[in-house]
């Protein structure tokens, strides 16, 4: 039989509680959820904890293990050293009901507020035709098991209850992206909706959600950034840009250029990473002090490498990041420096 290990488990309810010490037997090949079950079967039969499949498929046993949002069933005991004390606490972003169980109804409310799939008009059941490469982009997001770890870790709401009203969170950004990329979804306004009603603009791409996703969905790169950027794309339609160049439209006419700016902005197309001429005169520090440079022009995002038939080649599709490249470039580090970071905040429209 295995040896005893030290655990601290948060016990309590909405009125408060604290960490309690337990010494529990641990055997080879076990996961944290096994230990919680052993506790229930022995000294703490009323220890509250959600679980279902115990196979990383249902997303019920979300908890924070040594401060990291994890699934209890997918955290192997062998990843800890034998002398380490393992601290298990409930998800911090949601109100505690009891012990490790939290009230996750926030997520179900946001789910209801996200517009559902709009079936294409005039296509009968059985007549849906889609190509594998086209469904795969949305399928990535449909892998989501709704463990809500991304919602829990997102700092927009983690310690800011006041943002919960306006912010749907990563889970529902990927839902919006999934429907946006669905080959047959009839709604055209998924991006605008995400910007205007789901609070996509609050996200500043720190990628914490991607890091905690047990399904390894590239939430930030494949859903949030495309959803943010494409809205910018539309505003930066190359034809519109060309038109503005030819007709020497005043930059202030451009809706993305903020009024009240002290600098005249070149209407020329500055590509990603290329600074404005006047930016050279400022130091990096001043730039940061100024916060985000809203005048920086971002070139159109690189389109997916489709062939003559309009589809991704097999090698492209098999690539771990198929579809369009990250509009920020594939080699940048996140978080981006503030001066490289601009996008349309919904409130600025």
């Amino acid at each position: 039989m295995g040896e005893k290990r030290q655990f601290k488990v948060w016990r309590g309810d909405e009125t408060g509680g604290d960490l309690q010490d337990y010494q529990v037997e641990v055997n080879e090949g076990e996961v944290v959820l096994d230990i919680i079950h052993r506790l229930q079967a022995t000294e703490a039969p009323d220890l509250a904890c959600r679980w279902n499949c115990k196979a990383g498929k249902c997303g019920s046993c979300s908890m924070e293990i040594n401060g990291m949002p994890r699934l209890g069933c997918m955290t192997r005991m062998s990843t800890f050293s034998e002398t380490e004390t393992i601290t298990v606490t409930p998800l911090r972003t949601f109100p505690v009901i009891r012990d490790l169980v939290t009230d996750v109804s926030f997520n179900y409310e946001k789910a209801r507020e996200t517009p559902a799939f709009a079936p294409p008009v005039g296509v009968a059941p059985g007549e849906y035709r889609m190509q594998q490469v086209d469904v795969e982009r949305s399928q990535e997001f449909r892998k989501c098991i709704e463990c809500f770890l991304c919602q829990n870790t997102c700092h927009v709401v983690r310690d800011h209850d006041e943002n919960k009203n306006a912010f749907s969170g990563p889970r529902y950004f990927i839902r919006a992206a999934e429907l946006d990329m669905h080959p047959l979804d009839a709604r055209e306004d998924r991006k605008t909706y995400a910007q205007q009603h789901q609070g996509l603009g609050y996200c500043n791409i720190t990628k914490c959600c991607t890091e905690v996703c047990p399904e390894h969905i590239k939430i930030t790169d494949n859903a949030i950034i495309p959803m943010k950027e494409r809205v910018v794309d539309r505003k930066y339609d190359p034809l519109v840009w060309l038109g503005s160049k030819i007709f020497r439209r005043h930059p202030d006419d451009d809706e993305l250029v903020q009024s009240g700016s002290s600098h005249a902005v070149s209407a020329g197309p500055a590509m990603t990473g290329v600074d404005l001429p006047d930016a050279h005169e400022r130091t990096e520090e001043q730039e940061v002090e100024r916060g985000v440079n809203w005048h920086r022009r971002v070139g159109p995002a690189q389109l997916p490498a489709v062939g003559a038939n309009g589809r991704l080649g097999v090698s492209e599709a098999a690539f771990d990041r198929s579809g369009a490249a990250s509009p920020f470039g594939d080699d940048v580090e996140f978080p981006l420096p503030p001066r490289d970071l601009n996008y349309a905040h919904p409130d600025q429209d």
Partner: peptide, 24 residues
């Protein structure tokens, strides 16, 4: 069963596809 599966596509399900675009 076939009708019940096809119906799911009208609810938004995304099954894997055959080369001619049907449900694999």
């Amino acid at each position: 069963a076939p009708q019940r599966i096809w119906e799911l596509e009208t609810y938004g399900a995304l099954f894997d596809r055959t080369p001619d675009g049907k449900i694999s």
